[in-house]
Design a protein around this nucleic acid. Structure first.
Lengths: 352, 352
DNA sequence: GCCTATAAATGGAACGTTCCAATAAATCAA
DNA sequence: TTGATTTATTGGAACGTTCCATTTATAGGC
């Protein structure tokens, strides 16, 4: 429908009876142009249906205004919220973040990273896929492109990290369980290829140790970090000779799975077996029973990551401080009343 | 750490002792180059830490290999799945989709669209934000850029649409409710600025009419399309002089909210009040009680949308057929047993 | 009226690619 | 050997911007 070849600043220039340089200046909002000229040009821009070619512009300008966000699992609302947090701050800085999903696949991640770089992004915020190899970011580092990791870190990397205090979160949750009178606990889900797993498991172990739970009463059942994984973990745990009575779950998805499996066995989460989740996704509050979970404020971490990135770009550095976000345990119903004074009224009214 | 100025094909050419044209050919995988020369060049590429500048290339090439996906609400797993479906097919076509979130905000959408165009995308897949104005896509249409709408349509637009059969889904769900013996029904959530709302409500009304429910027994309570909205809808409905006994909800989020509100009143979803959701998000299956819902296969629709886009690009057209995806009602527990033979065992074992 | 200072607009080179036309080298037919 | 053909390689002109150095127009001071 429109004129075939797409319009350029030359077309605008002809239309408005000025030079291409003038058009360029108007496009950049330079104050050097006489207002009447500027509006003449702006009219011409409308008339010819011009769309700015940022690729061409970036050829001369040092930096683009796009930032890439690489997310390992978009379908997990937890990560989606991270993305939303980042977007909020980028938007107000006039930057458009492009999100790409790696679906937890390192090969895909490689492609995505490559594509983003070729596109000339100004920086990258990455929640690395599980199993990312140590060298995966070398290319990017040598290119001098600012990168920050969000939520997850890589074992030996020097790239700044924005993440929640997983160790402390796990510690708090475990202490809560022990405080409720549980003496034989289990950690559900996750596997050792994930740094986060070690952090959370570390917190669990430290709490057990500090608060007088013997090593043989601090169990671990690895598993998928999904509802399905949680179901499997619970089955495994209850099949033990001497089953635990409470579980700290790697994340909320695992916790939901575990609660589901309890229900299948006619056991009441909270009353018969205590469950704590991790991440505190929106759903946790609305579950039956409402899930006690460690809140990590992912949107807040996303905002933080975006701010750090902005600062890095501005000061043209590739270094920044790590930021460990505060966590807090939000107590709801899934751990029931104290184990010592245990009774059967698993009521509906919950804690805030 | 690396050499300051970023490497170009000239640097590679010097390093490998060939001309820039040869390097360009190698980059494009042309078969015209002698294999030994090619590998010499490839080595040089590694050595200088080259990153391809797609912006520069696009200056000459007609089309880029990036496609923009504009999503109205990333935190809704329903839309996230749509994105994942699209990604699957683009990936195998060697195309990298960039996702941008509009957070249901038309102004933001405008910005995002503009930015994507400036970036020189080859096409756009859009789930338009609520309240998108008719003219919002005129710019893009006159630019001759292929666009497809996913999940949602705009009232008077000629842009092809990939969406589920909302009308039929609502019809099926309503018929199910009526089949269970309900005689006074309500439609929960949504508002009339959404085309989808009209489609679903239309199905609800048609079923009522066809199956002998009087107009005054087919109620409507508008509301937010969220859990919170669902809670409010249920309160409103039960406060009526003659309350309904079953609800078709605009989407699953509303349904979850309604069930929650029932529970708060010590009513059992299914036994005391029947609920059907729409979209069949993953969570529906795992809820207590499991939610009966209309499955729309969003990932499948995403794949479909991507295919259509690919075809449009390939045949350089801006037109395509609409595609209305099949839906099916998946019956679980939230409508309980038949109302006529009603009893109180709201058991756990559910239908597949 | 002339000179200088300021404001507004412009031409040209550069950015990193692709692609065409041209060249150089190798192979073949006679 | 020569010319024709094929195979590899190359220089140069685009592509659509920005930005610097100029030029041109306008105003101010005397």
């Amino acid at each position: 429908m429109a004129s075939r070849a797409k319009a350029t600043i030359f077309d605008i220039a002809r239309e408005a009876g000025v030079s291409k340089s003038t058009v360029s200046l108007v496009l950049q909002g330079s104050g050097l142009i006489r207002p009447e000229t500027a509006s003449k040009v702006r009219k011409a821009i409308e008339d010819v249906g011009y769309v700015y070619n940022r690729g061409a512009a970036n050829l001369r300008k040092a930096h683009s205004n796009v930032i890439g966000m690489v997310i390992n699992d978009l379908t997990n609302p937890f990560f989606a919220e991270l993305a939303v947090g980042m977007e909020r701050v980028f938007q107000s800085a006039g930057i458009v973040p492009f999100i790409a999903n790696t679906a937890e696949n390192p090969v895909r991640q490689e492609e995505v990273l490559k594509s983003l770089m070729e596109q000339g992004v100004a920086g990258l915020i990455v929640s690395p896929a599980r199993g990312t190899t140590p060298g995966a970011f070398r290319r990017i580092e040598t290119a001098g492109l600012p990168v920050v990791f969000a939520m997850r870190r890589l074992p030996e990397s020097r790239i700044p990290v924005i993440a929640p205090d997983n160790h402390r979160g796990a510690y708090l949750a475990t202490a809560h369980l022990i405080g409720k009178g549980h003496r034989r606990l289990v950690f559900f889900g996750g596997s050792s290829d994930l740094v986060v797993y070690h952090e959370r498991l570390g917190g669990f172990r430290e709490a057990c140790e500090t608060l007088g739970i013997a090593d043989r009463d601090a169990l671990v059942v690895e598993g998928e970090t999904s509802r399905r994984g949680g179901i499997a973990c619970l089955e495994t745990a209850l099949a033990m000779a001497e089953p635990p009575t409470a579980a700290l779950c790697f994340n909320d998805a695992v916790a939901f799975g575990a609660m589901l499996a309890l229900r299948k066995r006619r056991l009441e989460p909270g009353a018969d077996f205590a469950i704590v989740g991790f991440d505190d996704v929106a759903e946790a509050e609305h579950y039956m029973p409402a899930l006690t979970s460690v809140a990590v404020d992912s949107a807040g971490l996303g905002e933080r990551a975006a701010h750090v990135m902005l600062k890095m770009i501005q000061s043209r550095t590739t270094r920044a401080e790590d930021h460990i976000g505060a966590v807090n345990l939000v107590v709801r119903e899934s751990c029931g009343p104290d184990r010592r004074t245990r009774n059967r009224n698993a009521g509906l009214g919950g804690a805030a």
